[in-house]
Design a binder for these strands. Sequence first.
RNA 1: GCCAGCGUAGCUCAGUGGUAGAGCAGCGGUUUCGUAAACCGCAGGUCAAGGGUUCGACUCCCUUCGCUGGCUCCA
Length: 582
Amino acid sequence: MSTTAKEDKSEQLRKMRHSASHIMAEAVQSLFPDTKFGIGPAIENGFYYDFELPRSLTPDDLISIEAKMKEIIKNGVPFTQQDMSKKEARQIFADQPYKLELVDELPDDTVSIYRQGSFTDLCKGPHVASSREVRAFKLTTIAGAYWRGDETRPMLQRIYGVAFLDRKQLKAHLHMIEEAGKRDHRKLGRELDLYSISNAIGPGLALWHPKGALVRRTIEDFWKDEHLKKGYDLLYTPHIAKSDLWKTSGHWEMYRENMFSPMDVEGQEYVLKPMNCPFHIMIYKSTLRSYRELPIRYAELGTVYRFERSGVLYGLTRVRGFTQDDAHIFCRRDQLQSEIEGILELVQYMMSSFGFEKYDIMLSTRPDKYAGTLEAWDEATEILRQALEHLDLPYEIDPGEGVFYGPKIDVKLRDALGHTWQGPTIQVDFNLPARFDVNYIGQDGNEHQIVMIHRTVLGSMERFLACLIEHYGGAFPLWLAPVQAVVIPITDRHAGYAEKIKVALQEAGISTRVDTRSERMNLKIREAQLQKIPYMLVVGDREEENSTIAVRKRTGEKQETVTLNDFIKTANTHIKERDNEL
RNA sequence: GCCAGCGUAGCUCAGUGGUAGAGCAGCGGUUUCGUAAACCGCAGGUCAAGGGUUCGACUCCCUUCGCUGGCUCCA
């Protein structure tokens, strides 16, 4: 298909989805004549429309709305467009407060409306010619949504639908959703016994079970090794600090709603840390610094606590206590760009090591609420941009999405199913160096203010694990797998040999379990398979006699019988190389 | 936090006003087996918590907690 044909098709799809949303609105209007209409755009995979209704919708309503929509589609009602003055539009939408608000905000005096059947909407289009062109669709969910995304405004009821050019694509999409459900890290987290969140502990506070902890240790060891290689120093810092520290840093003022309430310690107020930066700054400031020792790169797997509103918590991706793979770089202005580039290279290396080939890079600019001067923001934003361009990395601008203390580069990972995950982030900060008076002595013998970078290359251990689980569908590559091999004796009399194999493998650094229950081998294989253990090592009479093991891979490849040493050698090679194919 | 839905055994789920059920997991036996589920038995629940309506509540109502799907907000 040519590029233009592709564009035509996606434009057609978009038009059709948008029209589907209008047809849904017409269906809702016929069922609820007093409906007040919000907006109803086409979105990725489908469409939605927001309504103010006399009562809450139920899933049964979706069925009747869908039936009504099919009727409208079958009747082939035409979509017609008309331009009119705002005055006329106000008359048409006299009993539609949300539409009136939109009319008032449009810049031109002439506005566009679309009609189909009994439904009229303020809309610039385009639409399909006839409702008949809307083919494969399905209403999916009902949700609450604030009018114009503003939580101080009324909450409307939103109906989401998916729509495609034909039934086959719709089916494929619904199937994809189902597959995604099987990879859900919350489900796999329990099934693979990686982590849990206990109500007795509190929502948003994760418990890492032994297997999750093993995966984490592998990630952390790799992370630490790479950071030491790249010239970072590793730190440990406490979890609480005096409130005054956060007043100096500006968090008290700018970040208060995300911090847990203070606690009283012998008359002094302390809070749980929402960030690691002030601690690293204190280490930097523990002595006088020369320009010669810059850049200083401090890295820490730092656990922070942030208050998140209950409705936003989600599995391991949105929690209230989490460990950032944090680092702060203290450098001179002239070192900033090369430091940023170094971080971007490290990010790329980390991402490919963990098997993420696709990611989107976003450059976030100054938000409404910010610290520092306009000039400083412009300069830092420009340096981030130059670093991205120098490395030839494609990126998009995310206007106003920077943090209060500086612009940032965010990396959004794409997992195996194309979901995006906010992971690595690189943030320039000119708030803290000023507030904490972070300096170095320059060549000229005078004090100069430091330039500070905050960055993570994974994001947080919690979110990154969630992302890995979903990316691999729980089947971690060998090097990351919490249990890399399980030894399966065929009968009880092979248990001793199996045990010996297990001990040898453990000693060789391969995470191994042995299944000596008096169960049939088939059951043990099935369970190991469901646990997605990379290697099942079956041992019976033949293996014991020849001092070998029968290697079954979870991929179902043909099994091989090898000696223990050969197995250790190949397994350890794959582990050492961090082979993501295995 | 907001809107809607949900909460029954460790897990997955039946049960709609009249004495709480199944499969898997667990435990006890029997079986000793060659690449994805052997067989028999046993035990397991303040039906999320608290309050109310009722002769009687898992079931209806209210409150709280938690979860799910969204909205808003973020590593």
